[in-house]
Simulated assay, not measured.
Amino acid sequence: MRLAPILLSMVAVSSAAPSNIFNNIYDFSDELAEFYGKVSKYIDDVRHNVTPSATCDTSKISLPSFASGLPSPDGATPMYVALGRGTQNYTCADSTSSSTPVAIGAVASLYNATCIAANYPDLMEMLPNIAYKIALPANEYASMPPANIQLMGHHFFYDSTTPEFNLDTTAIKQYGVAMTKKQSQLNAPSSAAKGENGAVAWLYLTTTTGTVGEYKKVYRVNTASGSPPDTCKGMPSAFEVQYAANYYFFGN
Rank of each mutant, 00 (worst) to 15 (best):
V11M: 12
S40L: 14
T114M: 05
P137W: 10
C56D: 09
S15Q: 10
S95V: 00
R85T: 09
V177A: 01
T180P: 00
A131M: 00
E240I: 01
Y175C: 03
F156G: 10
T207A: 02
A147I: 10
L8V: 15
P137M: 02
Y90T: 01
M79P: 10
T208W: 00
L136C: 10
A16W: 09
N112W: 08
S53A: 12
E31M: 14
K173C: 01
S98D: 05
E240Q: 14
V221H: 00
A188W: 12
G84F: 03
R85W: 02
F156L: 12
T169F: 13
R220H: 07
A106D: 06
V13F: 08
S62W: 13
Y111T: 05
A16Y: 11
G195F: 07
T162A: 02
S225Q: 08
A106W: 09
F249P: 10
L151C: 00
T170V: 08
I25T: 12
I6D: 07
Y215S: 06
F165W: 05
S72W: 04
Y36C: 01
H154F: 12
I25Y: 12
Y158K: 15
A12K: 15
C56L: 05
I172S: 10
A199L: 03
P73V: 07
T161M: 02
A113K: 00
I172V: 14
D230T: 14
A4S: 07
L167W: 05
L70Q: 00
G75A: 07
A12N: 15
F22V: 05
Y219R: 04
I130M: 01
L136M: 13
G251N: 03
A4P: 04
C115T: 03
D45Y: 13
A244P: 10
P128Y: 06
Y141P: 01
D30N: 15
W202H: 12
S62L: 14
V107H: 14
A16H: 13
Y132W: 15
A76Q: 11
L83P: 00
V241P: 01
T223Y: 03
P5V: 09
S40I: 14
G105I: 02
Y80N: 04
P236M: 02
A135G: 13
M79G: 09
F157D: 04
P228N: 06
C92V: 02
T100F: 02
T162S: 07
Y248K: 09
Q150C: 03
A17M: 12
Y26N: 12
D44C: 09
S14T: 15
R85V: 13
Y215F: 15
V241L: 01
D168H: 14
D159R: 08
F28S: 07
A117H: 06
D122L: 13
E125K: 12
S29M: 09
M1E: 14
Y36L: 07
D27S: 07
S19K: 14
C92M: 05
G153K: 06
A67H: 09
Y248I: 04
S72V: 05
A142D: 11
Y26H: 15
A245V: 12
I116H: 01
K41N: 12
T170P: 02
S53I: 10
I21R: 09
E196D: 13
N187H: 11
A201V: 11
Y247L: 13
